[in-house]
């Protein structure tokens, strides 16, 4: 086995990635995960890290609009792509996304650890499935672990948000 020279030019790469609508350029170590790039380099700490091996769903973000695990992607892999984190969901600093509104109104969170992953997962899900059943919502969040709410209030919040979004409010 040959050892890898850390710090040689193959260990660092320049990347440019659009995060929540803004182009972010930087030099990253090739072994930096996307989750750590977001949290440590960009200080976007809304993306949470629970298990760091794909199981808990807390780190879920949208890559080109599709839900993915940020802990299972390397930052170099998203060069040239577009990422949306929980910080990018609200349309403005004073207006929340309808899903965020509904999570507030229906007690869809307690400690909030799972919430960023729930929201990103559900934003994509409601685009594909604007009028889901409660059962479909449960399947959609089956890969997001919440230790606080017991899920019922999250399902209620999602159904309420879906109804509001269909009404265009």
């Amino acid at each position: 086995m040959t050892s890898v020279a850390v710090g040689d030019e193959t260990a660092m790469r320049r990347i440019g990635v659009t995060v929540n609508g803004t182009l972010q350029a930087g030099e990253v170590s090739v072994r930096l995960t996307l989750a750590d790039f977001l949290r440590q380099d960009l200080k976007l700490t809304g993306t949470h890290l629970g298990c760091e091996h794909g199981v808990c769903g807390a780190c879920t973000i949208l890559l080109d609009g599709r839900a993915v695990r940020a802990c299972l992607l390397l930052a170099v892999q998203v060069d040239g792509h577009s990422v949306t984190t929980v910080e990018g969901l609200a349309p403005s600093a004073t207006v929340l996304h309808p899903l965020q509104e509904a999570f507030c109104a229906h007690h869809g969170l307690q400690c909030g650890f799972c919430t960023p992953g729930m929201l990103t997962t559900l934003v994509e899900f409601l685009k594909d499935c604007p009028d889901p059943s409660a059962e479909e919502v449960r399947v959609a969040i089956s890969g997001n672990i919440c230790r606080c709410t017991g899920y019922d209030s999250i399902v209620e919040a999602t159904l309420s948000a879906a109804a509001n979004m269909r009404d265009g409010s």
Partner: peptide, 23 residues
């Protein structure tokens, strides 16, 4: 896809010296 290899690397069950990213 990295959905098996990256978790194995995070747990250091796998420590490949080179990654050939085919994406």
């Amino acid at each position: 896809g990295g959905q098996t290899l990256v978790p194995a690397m995070a747990l250091r069950l796998a420590r490949p010296s080179h990654l050939v990213d085919i994406n």
